[in-house]
């Protein structure tokens, strides 16, 4: 025997279910809209900082001399790079230094193949943190210490992350 009352309860149940799903959807969508924007801003700040630091290193300090970036790679001197780059990315005006880490790779063409060469890092292993990538082009002359880089255009790539 079919009862009438149960049918109305079923409709209410479905309506309540729809209501809950819609509510859950709105709540979830509200929170997920915000998070990527915040992360994007933090990425942008880090990327801008890294770009600035690398560009300052790639700016000659005086007329008709090479930039520090060009010189330390030409002389294959990672310690020189670190002593220049680390204060640029970590220093703050009044607060203690920031906790940023980086590693540096060089890319250059060898015939038709793009070769990668690890140059240096700050000693902190990369453990899958969210990184940003900043790059600068430099030109090596035939006096470069690393034979493969001689007379090449080299892309200096820095991966930067916050611990």
């Amino acid at each position: 025997m079919v009862k009438n009352s149960a049918q109305l309860y079923t409709i209410e149940g479905i309506a309540a279910g729809v209501l809950m799903i819609v509510t859950a959807y709105i709540v979830v969508s509200t929170s997920t809209v915000l998070t990527p924007q915040d992360i994007h801003i933090i990425d942008m700040q880090l990327e801008q900082l890294g770009h600035d630091a690398l560009m300052v290193m790639n700016t000659p300090k005086d007329y008709r001399i090479s930039s520090n970036l060009t010189e330390c790679i030409s002389q294959n001197n990672p310690d020189w790079f670190k002593s220049n780059f680390t204060p640029l990315v970590r220093s703050r005006v009044f607060l203690p230094d920031d906790t940023l880490h980086y590693n540096v790779s060089l890319y250059y063409r060898d015939g038709d193949v793009v070769q990668k060469r690890d140059f240096t890092d700050d000693g902190m292993p990369y453990l899958g943190e969210k990184t940003v990538k900043v790059t600068q082009w430099i030109r090596m002359d035939d006096g470069a210490s690393i034979p493969e880089l001689r007379n090449k255009i080299v892309l200096v790539e820095v991966l930067l992350w916050r611990s």
């Binding site: 700040q45 801008q48 900082l49 630091a53 300052v56 300090k61 220093s91």
Partner: peptide
């Protein structure tokens, strides 16, 4: 703040009252 031995500093504006501030750090010559 100028990096290096001089370490000159310049500042203008109010002291932030909380952490809810927009922020950017630039490296310059």
């Amino acid at each position: 703040r100028e990096l290096g031995p001089s370490g000159r500093t310049w500042a203008i504006g109010e002291i932030p009252s909380n952490n809810n501030t927009g922020y950017i750090r630039r490296v310059v010559s």
